[in-house]
């Protein structure tokens, strides 16, 4: 056990947790509304990252890079919904088939990206780091950027859910058939959640690439963090997704107190399994009958 490392681990946990909270929300919104296990969200993430890399390497300032990534992500996500999920929806396809289609899109898309851009990792320029310290813990302005951007985006989505369109989303999330009976346009709602969720993934892709790099298979691990965060926190609950992501980030890092580094990947799945056994609706879901 190494308690000296605790302040650093707590801080790292908060940085990671903020990012995971945003990603969990981006994926969870799509899953709870459209009822699709959107594996291809990882592809949206990757496509947005490469879009960001392309403009950033032409000298675009970081703000523009975020905007481009959000837009590219939104379009990619919408294209996947229109091209793959909507036709399957219309045919009342089995959930398993939709999941397999999503996985197929992801794998095919990654292969295309690898073919077009090559295998090597790309870094995104446009943000210079300055080091900062808080007591014994060190970090940089990049970590601050991640936290600020993540929470601003989360806040924007929370506000959006209070608008009329947000209400329609809640309705379709709760009962799509009844929503249609009430005259709510469910396809428009699906379009909106894919746009919002995918735009968030695009922003996340830039944050991720700034901290690490962009590569063809970059999307799978953030996706797993996203869905674990969403399930742990509680599907259908915005607060749940946020708290689930935060908890995941904290646990992954605090696990470092007693687990050797190469086992930390287990922490995420351990957390998921425990939650599924003990409280399957999610830790922060408000009602146990879901």
């Amino acid at each position: 056990m190494s308690l000296n490392a605790l302040p650093q681990l707590l801080l790292n946990g908060f940085f990671a947790g903020s990012f995971y909270a945003m990603m969990a929300l981006s994926w969870g919104l799509i899953f709870s509304t459209a009822k699709i296990f959107h594996f291809a969200h990882a592809l949206v993430f990757t496509v947005a990252a490469y879009g960001a890399w392309m403009v950033a390497s032409q000298g675009m300032p970081i703000v523009g890079t975020f905007i481009v990534a959000a837009a590219v992500g939104a379009l990619a996500g919408l294209a996947i919904d229109r091209g793959i999920y909507r036709p399957l929806r219309r045919r009342n396809a089995l959930q398993l088939n939709v999941f397999l289609a999503s996985l197929g899109v992801l794998l095919a898309g990654e292969a295309v990206i690898q073919f077009v851009f090559g295998v090597q990792a790309r870094s995104i320029q446009g943000f210079t780091l300055s080091p900062l310290r808080l007591g014994r813990a060190g970090f940089t302005t990049l970590e601050i950027l991640v936290v600020v951007v993540s929470w601003v985006v989360i806040g924007a989505v929370v506000l959006f859910m209070r608008t009329r369109q947000g209400t329609a989303i809640r309705a379709v999330e709760s009962n799509p058939e009844l929503s249609r009976a009430m005259g709510i346009n469910d396809e428009k709602v699906y379009r909106n959640v894919f746009l919002v969720g995918s735009a968030m993934a695009g922003v996340g892709a830039v944050l991720f690439s700034l901290q690490e790099t962009a590569s063809p298979t970059m999307g799978i691990e953030p996706l797993i963090a996203a869905f674990i965060g969403a399930f742990v926190g509680g599907i259908g609950s915005i607060g749940g997704a946020i708290l689930g992501g935060l908890l995941l980030g904290m646990m992954e890092n605090l696990g470092g107190i007693f687990l050797p580094g190469h086992l930390q990947v287990i922490v995420a799945f351990l957390l998921l399994f425990i939650v599924l056994l003990v409280r399957p609706v999610g830790l922060f879901a408000r009602d146990t009958k879901a």
Partner: peptide
């Protein structure tokens, strides 16, 4: 990809 826990222990 994520070395923060290892590095945190090393720093400590």
């Amino acid at each position: 990809r994520n070395f923060s826990p290892m590095l945190a222990r090393i720093a400590a």
